Computed example of a mutant assay.
Amino acid sequence: MPHRRLLSSAAALVLVLATAAPSIAQTPMDDPLDARDARRLDKMEKVVRELRAIVYQGRDSGKPVVVQPAETDFQIQELTRRVNDLEQVITRLNGQLETTSHDLDEARRALQASQAQEQSLTDRVTALEQRLAPPADDGGGEADGGQAAAATNASPGEAFSEARQLMLNGDYDAAERAWSAFVHAYGDTDKGPEGQYWYGKTLSARGAHADAATAYIGAVRGWPKTSWAPDATVELARELVALKKGPQACQALDQFSKRYPKAPSNVRSRAAATAAQAKCG
C-alpha cells in the first residue's frame, strides 16, 4: 500500500542517515562550516527527527499518521471563521435596526393621532363653552363692572381669600358675587383658573348648570396638574349630564381617567357614578 511504502522509505532514509551520521562525524574536515551551512544542517536534522517520529508513530500504532495543517492554513481558516461570525452579527444587527425603526414609526404615528384627538377635544370644549356662555345684557354688564371695580380695590390674594371665606361661612350668594368679581378682575392671573373652579361651585349650588359648566370649562382649560383639577373635571361632567349632554360628559370623564389617574378615591367614585348616569360605554 502507498502508506506502507512511504513508511518503509522513510524508515530506510532514517536508517541511512543514522548510519551515515557517525561516519560524517568521524570524517575530518579542513574548514569549519559557515553559518549558512550550519542552518541547513539544523533543518536537515529537524526533518530527520520529524520523519523518525512519523515512522515510530505508524509502527507503534498501526494507524494512519495525521499531519496537522500548516500554520498559515490554520490562520486562514480561523480568519474565515471570524469573518463568518461578523457577517452573522451584522445580519442580526440589521434585523434589530429594522425592527427598532418600525417601532419608532408606529410610536410617531400614535403620538400624532393622540395630538389630533386632543386638539379635537379642545376644539369641542371651546365650542361648548361658547354655546353655554350666557347672553350679555346691559344690567348684568353694569353689575359685573361694579363687582370687578370693587375687586380691584384689593390685591388678587386678598380678593381670593375673601371670596373663599364667604364660601366657608355658607354665604353662597355673597360668595358667588365675590367669585364673579374675582374672575372678571383677575381671571388672567395664576389664580384665575382656581377662581373659575370656585365660581363654578357657587353656581352649581343654586342649580345654574349652564353657567357652572362654563366656569368649570375655564378652570380645566389646559388640564392643569393641581389638587382641585380632578374635582373640577368631574363637576363639569355632572353639569353636562344635568344639561342632557351625555356624550360631552363622557368625553370629559375619559380625559379625567387619562389626566388624573391618581385622583382621590372619593373623586373617582363620583366620576364612576357620573359615567353611569351619562351611560358612557
Rank of each mutant, 00 (worst) to 15 (best):
A154H: 14
S155T: 15
S155Y: 08
S155M: 02
P156G: 01
P156Q: 07
G157S: 05
G157A: 04
E158D: 15
E158T: 15
F160R: 02
S161F: 03
S161T: 15
E162I: 12
Q165S: 06
L166E: 09
M167E: 15
M167P: 04
M167N: 11
L168I: 02
L168F: 14
L168V: 00
N169G: 15
G170P: 10
G170E: 09
G170M: 10
Y172W: 09
D173V: 01
D173K: 08
D173G: 13
A174N: 05
A174W: 04
A174G: 08
A175Q: 13
A175K: 04
A175N: 08
A175G: 06
E176G: 09
E176Q: 10
A178E: 05
F182L: 04
F182N: 11
V183S: 00
V183K: 03
H184I: 03
H184C: 05
H184Q: 14
A185L: 13
Y186R: 07
Y186K: 13
G187H: 00
D188I: 06
D188F: 08
D188W: 08
D190A: 08
D190I: 06
K191T: 00
K191C: 01
K191P: 00
P193T: 04
E194W: 05
E194C: 05
E194Y: 06
E194D: 07
Y197E: 10
Y197P: 03
Y197N: 12
W198P: 06
Y199G: 06
Y199T: 01
K201Y: 14
L203G: 10
S204Q: 10
A205Q: 03
R206V: 07
R206K: 13
R206F: 11
R206G: 03
G207M: 07
A208I: 05
A208S: 15
H209F: 13
H209D: 15
H209P: 01
A210E: 09
D211V: 06
T214M: 13
T214C: 08
T214L: 13
T214V: 09
A215S: 14
A215T: 12
Y216M: 07
Y216N: 08
Y216Q: 10
I217Q: 13
G218K: 10
V220S: 11
V220D: 08
V220K: 07
R221H: 14
R221S: 14
R221L: 11
G222F: 10
G222H: 11
W223T: 06
P224E: 12
P224C: 05
K225E: 01
K225L: 03
T226L: 03
W228S: 00
W228C: 00
W228E: 00
A229L: 05
P230K: 00
D231C: 06
D231R: 10
A232I: 00
A232M: 02
T233D: 10
V234Q: 02
E235Q: 15
L236P: 02
L236D: 02
A237S: 15
A237T: 12
R238W: 08
R238P: 03
R238E: 15
E239C: 11
L240C: 04
L240Y: 04
V241A: 00
V241H: 01
V241C: 04
A242R: 14
A242T: 12
L243E: 09
L243A: 12
L243V: 10
L243Y: 04
G246A: 02
P247D: 08
Q248L: 11
Q248S: 13
A249M: 07
A249I: 04
A249V: 09
A249Q: 11
Q251M: 12
Q251S: 14
A252T: 09
